[in-house]
Simulated scan of single mutants.
Amino acid sequence: MKKRILLLAGGQSGEHEVSLMSARSVLAALPRDQFDVTPVVISKQGRWLSPTETQRAIESGSAPQGGDLVLHRAASAEGYDAVFPLLHGPMGEDGTIQGLLTLAGIPFVGSGVLGSAVSMDKVMTKQVLASAGIPQVAWRLAVRREWHDRPEVVRARAAELGYPLFVKPANLGSSVGISKVSRPEDLTRALDLAFHLDRRVILEAMTAHKPRELEVGILGNDAPVASPVGELRFSADFYDYETKYTEGRASMHIPAPVPTEVAERVRELALTAFRTLDCAGLARVDFFYVETTGDLFLNEVNTMPGFTTTSMYPKLFEAAGLSYSELVTRLVELALERR
């Protein structure tokens, strides 16, 4: 018999439109002879849309305001074998929807509450991975109240790291709210932007030399496997939102043209991070590689990476011999396996 799958898309984060693009690709790829898929779009206001509104949102790439205030039948566990929560960022990739589905007793694709929440929060990710000895760039934490009451303390932390540095909201994805700060006088603007989006902010040192950006995909539960290593190349100062989602601004190179020992080290560190954070199903792990020194630094772990047919994660496993359709099928199988 066909497995009934509930595909959730949209969501309340700044990556709402990215999620809808991912949903179109997954809907087209899940084999119809194996799965009966019901999509449901969550609006930016957190409302679960009707089937008609959902279809329009997926086709148009944007969800209307409105919808049911309460979760309708499509959002319940009744009648579904698994859920594919194709939601990026806060209120979707951070353990919130995973907690709801856990309470409902229904299997779902991806990491559980712990792995999702810890991986979404950059502060917790850094602290947990440091305990496992995984190399990361130097960083400092600042909180909104502290910036308001004692700005000199936050400025002192930035000075400890040196300029230029990066300012990042702790709980957002897709480079939203990130600023490169080259001079102390530019720090206020960057912090005000980041604190407008999150009450906790990361100050992050830059590497001594401009790094190359390497990415690797992880697939599996308790016996995960790593994909070939890919590299992102772009001319911008960093991989910001505009560069990420504007065609032609960045290029993927799979496999990454790096020494074999570097690629193997990236894969090894990515698998260690995946297990340490208690991830499941899938993740994309991003690294900085400083070619002149040979240093590798883990940048971040994405537990629900972009999932269009041209996104890095599917492309990494395509290079390993797994087609897009086979990949999404395997992810549903892994969700059911965890039951």
Rank of each mutant, 00 (worst) to 15 (best):
N221C: 13
A28C: 03
G281M: 12
P51K: 07
V285M: 09
L334Y: 00
V154Y: 11
V290A: 10
V328E: 13
P224K: 09
P314K: 04
P90M: 03
V301K: 01
F234R: 08
A250E: 05
P314Y: 07
F274M: 01
T38D: 14
P64E: 08
P64L: 08
E300M: 03
Q12A: 04
R233S: 12
L219S: 09
K122R: 15
G281I: 10
E291F: 09
P90I: 08
K126P: 13
E337D: 14
A319Y: 03
V153H: 14
I134H: 03
Y241A: 12
S60C: 00
L114T: 11
L298S: 00
F297K: 02
A190Y: 06
F288T: 12
L114D: 01
L6Y: 02
D36G: 05
E326S: 14
T272L: 14
V109E: 09
T54A: 06
G112T: 07
R155I: 03
P85H: 06
L334Q: 01
V176S: 06
A250N: 11
M312Y: 04
M312V: 07
N299F: 00
E261K: 06
R189D: 14
G67Y: 04
T207H: 11
T243Q: 08
Q127K: 14
L141H: 11
E53D: 15
D278Q: 15
R157K: 15
A194Q: 03
S323H: 05
G177L: 03
S25L: 03
T260W: 06
A28H: 07
G115S: 05
A335M: 10
D68Q: 12
P39M: 11
C279V: 08
V290F: 09
F307H: 06
G220E: 10
T276R: 15
